[in-house]
């Protein structure tokens, strides 16, 4: 097979799976709790800065993962308790509040780290020979991790007790309260899972992108678009949305250039928001 085609195909796979990884946190928070967390991108950014701080201190790359989980988890906990909890079932107010939160996190990052961007070294710098082409090893690892996290989360949600309880809370909150489910705690827990996933994605993506205060903006829109295109509350939704948005971006970027990829994604997302806001695979 033509090595160029293999590389491009792998790029598409890479684009789609990493996008799915970036979406997961928002899929949990928006898809399950119904909270349109505009600050999702800033949680990803926080994760990415954790990777930078780890490197700046000379710690091993993997140390960034627990750091991001702790920081994003604690942040998520505080935000859910202080900001989100009074606003459940008021989607518009949540939008404004999390929009303010995104500003706050961005400005805070600017104040601490400055406006400039940082590079995080790729932890696995080499390439791997695959189907007649050399492909960056870290990208392959990222594809594998993304797939594993996606499947792991899906399975956990299907079979674990907590997953079932979250499903119960989401499906019928009144009844959940009546059977004694600690609904408020469970909601906090779910929110924290979402922010942790965002932080995790941020760490993993950090070596491949410039780490800068405005990076969250792109991610929140892209991930929101994925959910709008795919539909809320289903794994199929996340996958199909990531396939459409990530696939379009990769293919158009490869065929023409990155600007056109970005434009195509914006146009497609606006069309979906406008014409089919419930997406391809919405939960009934």
């Amino acid at each position: 097979m033509d090595p160029l085609i293999v590389t491009q195909a792998l790029n598409v796979v890479y684009g789609v799976t990493t996008l799915a990884l970036l979406v997961l946190g928002l899929a949990v928070i928006f898809g399950l709790l119904g909270v349109l967390n505009i600050a999702h991108g800033e949680f990803i950014m926080t994760g990415a800065y954790c990777a930078y701080v780890t490197q700046a201190n000379g710690w091993p790359f993997l140390a960034a993962l627990p750091l991001a989980l702790i920081i994003c988890g604690a942040l998520g906990f505080v935000v859910e308790r202080g900001l989100i909890r009074p606003l459940y079932a008021r989607p518009f107010d949540t939008l404004v509040a999390t929009w303010g939160l995104s500003l706050l996190l961005r400005k805070l990052t600017e104040a601490i780290f400055g406006m400039g961007f940082y590079n995080v070294d790729v932890p696995l710098p080499g390439t791997v020979a695959l189907l007649g082409t050399d492909y960056p090893a870290y990208r392959l690892v990222l594809i594998a991790i993304s797939g594993a996290v996606l499947i792991g989360l899906f399975v956990w949600f299907r079979i674990s007790r907590t997953g079932t309880r979250i499903k119960a809370m989401v499906g019928n909150r009144e009844l959940a309260e009546a059977v004694g489910l600690p609904v408020r705690r469970l909601a906090t827990y779910t929110f924290v899972i979402g922010t942790c996933l965002a932080g995790l994605a941020g760490v993993l993506i950090a070596p491949l992108v410039p780490v800068q205060p405005f990076m969250g903006l792109d991610y929140v829109l892209k991930t929101f678009f994925v959910l709008v295109v795919g539909g809320l509350g289903t794994v199929m939704g996340v996958l199909s949305g990531a396939a459409v948005i990530g696939g379009l971006d990769s293919v158009v970027s490869a065929a023409i250039d990155a600007t056109y990829g970005y434009l195509t994604v914006l146009v497609v997302a606006i069309l979906f928001l406008w014409l089919k806001p419930r997406g391809l695979f919405a939960r009934s």
Partner: peptide
């Protein structure tokens, strides 16, 4: 409850 007496998704 009278309405929505069970968890439909479970």
């Amino acid at each position: 409850p009278q309405e929505r007496p069970v968890f439909d998704d479970l």
